[in-house]
Design a protein around this nucleic acid. Sequence first.
DNA 1: ATCCGTTGTGACAGCGCTGTCACGACAGAG
DNA 2: CTCTGTCGTGACAGCGCTGTCACAACGGAT
Lengths: 344, 344
Amino acid sequence: MTDVAERAGVSPSTVSRTLRGLPTVSPEVRARVEQAARELNFAVSRQAASLVTGKTGVVAVLVPTLNSWFMGSALSSLGPLLRAAGRELNVYLIPDMTERTSFFERLPARRNADALLVFGFDLTHEETARLDDLGMPVIYVSQHAEGRPSVYVDDVDGALKATRHLLNLGHRRIAFAPTTGATGFSFSSRERLLGYQQALTEAGIPLDDELIVTMAADDTRGLITGIGQLLSLREPPTALFAEQDELAVAVIHTLRRAGIHVPDRMSVIGFDDHQVAQWFDLSTVAQSPSDMGRLAGELALHLIDDTAADRTRHVILPTQLIPRATTAPKATPQQDEEPARTSP
Amino acid sequence: MTDVAERAGVSPSTVSRTLRGLPTVSPEVRARVEQAARELNFAVSRQAASLVTGKTGVVAVLVPTLNSWFMGSALSSLGPLLRAAGRELNVYLIPDMTERTSFFERLPARRNADALLVFGFDLTHEETARLDDLGMPVIYVSQHAEGRPSVYVDDVDGALKATRHLLNLGHRRIAFAPTTGATGFSFSSRERLLGYQQALTEAGIPLDDELIVTMAADDTRGLITGIGQLLSLREPPTALFAEQDELAVAVIHTLRRAGIHVPDRMSVIGFDDHQVAQWFDLSTVAQSPSDMGRLAGELALHLIDDTAADRTRHVILPTQLIPRATTAPKATPQQDEEPARTSP
DNA sequence: ATCCGTTGTGACAGCGCTGTCACGACAGAG
DNA sequence: CTCTGTCGTGACAGCGCTGTCACAACGGAT
């Protein structure tokens, strides 16, 4: 910065003022400084600036994964938003329990960011308490945190819609497939289970734990045994509600391999309206992670700038049922297509 | 840090030494300091430290998008690697031309990172030159940059394998579908086109530009018109090589809607071995973005630490053909299944 | 002519660390 | 007993900025 000052024939103070866009700089000096800065390829060191201002110019996000449709979409809308606000995006990726523990122990984000967006973890009380004294706004995204700023989709309602759709098609034995994840989206998982159960209860159908089988989209063996479990029940399900589209698609693939036609023999519905849902003609419940990312980002910027802002506001996003081709009315036993059992 | 020093009854210097793990600290003092630091929830300010050391402790990545399988996988392996090395991950998301221009004009990464990983852009000479005087190692990932450290997959060879596979199945009219992207992976796109052309030339088949139609997986109308273009040729293709699995899947979906069976009427092969490929039984060419992310990260760390390291090393990753169910031998005209034309 | 307010600029301290150097304590060699 | 080397610790400057204050220049009001 001293170099720029010399080249422009002004003091470092004036350079600083110019580069920060403060109004108290005469037009001709401003022009000279900007010229000099350009010639010297000068960029302000955030480190040095933040040392004085106490602001880092960085927004950190804590995410369980990056190779998921949800995180990708959310961060894709968050990124440009932050750039437009002149802020950088710092990613803390916590893929497993070890990293999670170490993150909350050492809180490396402390003093190295102006705000933290926590995506989709189902945090313990201790963990939330740790974040409370991080000394920066913490926004909970894709999860509900009591008394703290949160942005999330109405998972219970979405699951309710999915399950009601299946009920309306005449299904009575409806399975629910939550998905696993080392540190994953267990918050949404729990809420969706709740919505599923609520819908069944509404319809007067007793809950049956045997119909709830956890699976993972990328674990072929687990999928097969999970589905085998369902098919070997005394009264197997005629419909399945998968916690995520990707799991739904994997389930359909596995069912087809086993010769079980979807939706004739089994209706399947997902959750997300992932792009793959369209390609599979998958019935699903749409949510918008990009809206979520955007709203969470806006909330973060707001809380950084306005320290007096309401810190308990919750933003709840809606869901929509998208019926497609993988859900159909329950087949009556007579309609069963399996050749061996066709005639009495 | 002063607070910790007081609490532990030592000087700030000693606290600094302890927290950095320098060896010249006696065990009992070390214990006291660590205890005090824990009690006060102290974390070193990277900003202040970097001001002195000149190292930011940050590795920046420049990416065209985040909601793609490729980027998600690559960053998922990069993240933990950097954390293990005690470094943070800063993401510059450049989704369009405007942001791209402004990034290269202002180079905001300057002095705010120790290394930059540039993912998949097909940079101009000016842009590369700009990065050269960024004052930090720049690693080119998923692209080849002459005389600069690069990590990329052998796209030409992969495309060669895909096209040869179709040729070996008897196809002679083979379409190629590159994908669009505002700032996208045009580097791979170009290389894959090269491989495709090379395979055809090898087989003595003349190149036909009408068989090359750009499409985007998320643009339904564009897909329909693109495919329409191919089907309305005097001699339509019997096979299609899509630049990416997601596009291949979208194409298959569109073809099916149009009543064109894959692979009976049209063989389709992708590139990536994306998870969706498995669910669709899509023939494809596998590459490993997570290997790429890891290797690029390791290279970055190496170049940061060892300033004397070779700065022109290229790491080239292999590809594998994964034949699945969407490619089949070319149907002879007699085998055509379309009912209206079955009998002569 | 004097005073005051406004505007643009410079001087300077200090943000929280680290690297360097100095120094005391102590052990082992002479 | 003295000298020398080693080890652990403290003092202090300074990294590159920004915020504050001081101050010169000038125009308009009195």
